[in-house]
Computed example of a mutant assay.
Amino acid sequence: MPAPTFHAFAREFLELCETDRLGINTRMNYDVHLPLYLLPALGRRRLDEITPQDITKLKKSLAKKSHNTSCEVLKTLRRVLNGAIAERKIECAPVEFDIPRRGPSTSNRVR
């Protein structure tokens, strides 16, 4: 059976998040990241056909967003792919990518 599209698995992923009782903030992040950033970039791709070029294109689309937003969107992508592996939709991640470290929040800075 071929791997589902990113869009099809994203719906299943969100249902799994409800089952796992993820924190409200985590779920809210997924609810924003998927439709705004990930589905437009990867929605039609099968999970096992995501390429390094797709990741580069996604990163370019995030270039004008804050550094922390870019990091969080990439974390969401990694969690979706790990969820697909756990659900045996794919055997392994189709592509490796680095997630830069988040910068310090403005509330933690010494003034």
Rank of each mutant, 00 (worst) to 15 (best):
M1Y: 10
A3K: 03
P4E: 01
F6L: 09
F6P: 03
F6Y: 01
A8G: 02
F9A: 04
A10G: 09
E12I: 06
F13R: 03
F13M: 01
L14S: 00
L14W: 02
E15S: 13
L16F: 03
L16W: 03
C17Y: 04
E18I: 02
D20E: 04
R21Y: 13
R21V: 09
M28H: 12
M28L: 14
Y30M: 01
D31P: 03
V32E: 08
V32T: 07
V32P: 04
L34F: 00
P35S: 06
Y37Q: 00
L38R: 10
L39C: 01
L39Y: 04
P40S: 01
P40H: 03
A41G: 02
L42F: 09
R44E: 14
R44V: 10
L47R: 04
E49I: 07
T51N: 10
K57A: 15
K59P: 15
S61I: 11
L62V: 11
K64H: 10
S66C: 08
H67G: 10
T69K: 00
E72C: 13
V73D: 04
L74Y: 02
L74N: 05
L77F: 02
L77V: 02
R78P: 02
R79S: 08
N82G: 06
G83I: 08
G83V: 05
R88A: 01
K89L: 10
E91G: 01
E91H: 04
C92T: 11
A93R: 01
P94Q: 02
V95R: 04
F97T: 01
F97S: 06
D98V: 15
D98Q: 13
P100W: 07
P100S: 08
P100A: 13
R102D: 14
P104H: 12
S107L: 15
N108A: 14
V110T: 12
R111D: 14
